[in-house]
């Protein structure tokens, strides 16, 4: 099952990359995609469950605009800190750790990368269900503590 899904995804990817739609190149694409999906079909999907995937993809795409808004806020924050002359008064770097409720690996990864991209925080480590986060100033971890991002991520993978 995962073999065929991987093959179809890779073949679409190959054809978009190649941009040549004649028989010769299509057969080369089939050969190389069969080869790659034979080698690494267990990587793309570890355990495929029927249903629910399409809903997750749609919710993930709906999550992206909010994330981009947060990223722009993050960048303005960093640029303002970097360019301000009294930078050492404004920043207050510290490590913090907090527990999360989400369980699935994919949610944790999405959440961790979202934390890294949003204002003033970087995921430093994940120890089971505990996140270690490096924060750049005191104001930003109050933002993180409201838990809005975690709710949104949990909503994507239907864990709420």
């Amino acid at each position: 099952m995962s073999f065929f899904v991987t093959f179809i995804i890779l073949f679409v990817y190959w054809m978009v990359m190649a941009g040549k739609f004649d028989i010769f190149h299509a057969s080369l694409g089939v050969i190389s995609c069969l080869f790659v999906s034979y080698m690494s079909h267990d990587l793309l999907f570890k355990n495929i469950k029927s249903g629910g995937k399409i809903k997750e993809v749609v919710r993930f795409i709906l999550y992206i605009p909010w994330l981009i808004y947060q990223i722009i806020l993050a960048n303005l924050h960093v640029v303002r800190l970097a360019l301000s002359p009294n930078m050492y008064d404004l920043i207050d770097p510290h490590l913090m750790r907090f527990k999360i409720k989400i369980k699935k690996d994919i949610s944790k990864v999405t959440f961790a990368n979202s934390i890294t991209l949003t204002p003033g925080t970087i995921t430093a480590d994940i120890i089971d269900d505990e996140f270690v986060v490096h924060a750049l100033s005191q104001a930003v971890d109050d933002d993180l503590m409201t838990g809005e991002m975690e709710r949104r991520v949990a909503h994507i993978f239907s864990e709420d």
Binding site: L10, Y13, W14, M17, S32, C33, V36, M39, S40, L43
Partner: peptide, 8 residues
């Protein structure tokens, strides 16, 4: 898988 497909 995408890197391998890109390599080919």
């Amino acid at each position: 898988p995408f890197i391998q497909a890109f390599a080919l």
